[in-house]
Amino acid sequence: MDDFPMLILTGAALVLVAFYDFLRTTISLSGTGFLSRAVAEGLWRLGSKLTLGLEQMTGVSIRGLLGPVILLAVAGTWVLLHLCGYVLILRGGLSLVQTDTGEPATWVQTVAFAGSTLSTLGASTVQVTGGWWDILSMVAAMNGMILLTLAVSFLLNILQTTNSARTFASRFHAIKAREPDGDISSRLEGLGSDLTSVVVMLTASPLPRFFVPSDSTMDFPKTVVELCNLIETGTLATTSEIAAAIRLLGRHLGTSLDQNEVVAARMWAVRHTIPQTNRT
C-alpha cells in the first residue's frame, strides 16, 4: 500500500513533464522542449554518422529518412510518457475492474485502458470504479485530444517550413548558377524577405533542420554556410536584409560558444549538414 502514493506521484510527474515539453515544442513559437531537443539531437548525431557510413560503404543513402524518423521519435516520446504516466496513476489504487467479473484490472488491461482513453477511442474490457477515477479518465481523454490535434498542426507547420527552406536554397543556387563569376549581391537582395521568413519559422520550430534532401541545391544549412562566406568576404553588405536574416539565425539558434552572430549561424549550419560522399 505504501507504494501506491508513489506510483500516483510518479505518474503525475511524467504526465506533467511530457505535456509541458509537448506544449513548449508545438505552440510556444520559441524552440523545443528539453526532452524533444535531447531526443532529436541524439538521433541526429547517431543518424548522421550512420548515413555517412552507409554511403561510404554501400552507396545507399538514408538522408531522406532522418527527418521523418526523428519527428516520429519525438512524437512517440510524448505519447509513451503520457501512457506510462496514466498507467502509473491508475495502478496507484483500485481504479479499474474487469467488466465481466468485477476483478481488479491487470497491468496489461490498465495499459490498454490508458491507451484507449488517450486515443479517445474509449473501447476497453475494464471500467473505472467511479469517483475521482472517472474524472481522471475524462482528463486523460481531453489530454489525448489535445495531443492529437496539436500534433497534426505541428507536423503540417514543420513540412511547410521545410518546403520554404528548400525553395529558398533552390532559388539561391539558381541565381548563383546564372552568374558563377559575377556580382550576385544585387540579385540576392530579392531573396531577403524569403530568408527572413524561413529563419523566423525555424526559431519557432527548429525541427525542420533535420530533414536532409538528397539534392544538395535544396540543402538549407549548406546555403547558410555559403551566405556566411559571402558576408564575411564582403560580397554581401552587412547592412543587407540577407545579412540581417543570417544574424537573426545566429542569434536565436547559435550556441553560447559561438563568437558572433554570423559565426554562430555558420556553426549552426555546419552542425546540421551531412557532407556529400563520393558514392552518392
Rank of each mutant, 00 (worst) to 15 (best):
D100F: 09
T161P: 00
L191Q: 05
A169I: 02
V198A: 04
T99G: 06
M201R: 09
R251V: 12
V262F: 08
N157D: 12
T25Y: 02
D215S: 15
D215I: 09
V17R: 14
C228S: 09
A245V: 04
G190H: 10
L71D: 10
L236S: 12
L236G: 06
T161Q: 07
T149C: 01
V39G: 00
D258R: 01
W107S: 12
I274N: 09
T223I: 00
A243L: 08
L253W: 13
D100G: 01
F113E: 14
A12P: 03
S185W: 13
G122H: 09
D183G: 07
K49H: 15
V262C: 08
P213F: 01
R63Y: 07
V15W: 09
P104Y: 05
A174M: 02
W44L: 11
V199D: 12
A123L: 13
G53M: 07
L188T: 12
S256H: 12
A105K: 04
M201N: 09
V139Y: 06
A174I: 06
P180C: 05
E179R: 04
T203Y: 01
T51S: 15
M138W: 03
V79G: 05
G93Y: 07
L257W: 13
M145I: 04
V69T: 15
G115N: 06
D3E: 13
A264V: 10
A123R: 15
W268D: 05
R171Q: 15
F154M: 06
D258L: 06
